[in-house]
Amino acid sequence: MLLLIAPAGIVLVLFQIVPIVFGANASFRDWQLFNPAQTWVGLKHYLYILGDSTFLTIVLPNTFLLTFLSVTLSLIGGLALAHYLHRNFAGQWLMQTIILLPQMIAPVIGAMMMRWVFNDQFGVVAAFLDWVGFGPISWLAQRWPSFFIVILTDVWIWTPWFALILLAGLRSLPREPFEAAQIDAAGAWRTFTHLTLPMLRPVIAVCVLIRSIDAFRTFDVVWILTGGGPARSTEVFSIYTYVETFVNLDFGRGSAAAIIGALIILVVAGAMYKVAGRVADVAR
């Protein structure tokens, strides 16, 4: 029976465990193109990054803010869309298709689309602003507008995911408590807050956990939309690591950044896992 997992095991070891060891090794060395000796430097890279004001004051806050806002907004949007789809109407399939599309197309394309939509001269938003009488806004030339577009795009991509999973959750809820609530004269909002939400809590907890871990490592959307700019103001953890490694060509420092990020997310995810478990348990 061990044979069954042998092929998977080999690939796993070679391309997951070996790289981690490799990366850990690199993070303690001066591993740059012009230093073939790869001198052991100990914790120098770690100390550098933990003292880097860009990392501490821009990259980390950006990463957490992006994670928090993207997950919260997609969850709210997803709940609304799930309720919208949770009924029988002609065209339900069509609407579900439309809602699914952003999740299905590549994030790279999604980000490109948004870049075009928010193009400060020819984008549809610029045309609309012009029509209502506002001057053009250079969305991607300032920090907060750029960040807003990054979050908007991420929410656009991930709301469908929440919607579809929550819809499945809604469909699996028993019908009787809702009928009892109808007889008990619970209003629409009270039914939602006192019945739907508590009953969906386990599903929501799992969704938020998975999505938070994913959002923490967002790369493609930010890379295409802003590249971390203007002037590194929208850099998130993945971009920072990438830039250190492949733009500055400092593998040692990049590896150290990668490991710091991995440790942060492991701790955060571990804590969230505990909370999610308790939340799901309360609802049961």
């Binding site: 028993p174 009787e176 408590p177 009928e179 009892a180 609530a181 007889i183 006192h194 019945l195 508590p198 009953m199 809590r201 309360v282 609802a283 049961r284």
Partner: peptide, 12 residues
Amino acid sequence: AMVFQNYALYQH
């Protein structure tokens, strides 16, 4: 007022 087959109590 109604009593349901599976009681339909509010579980939480």
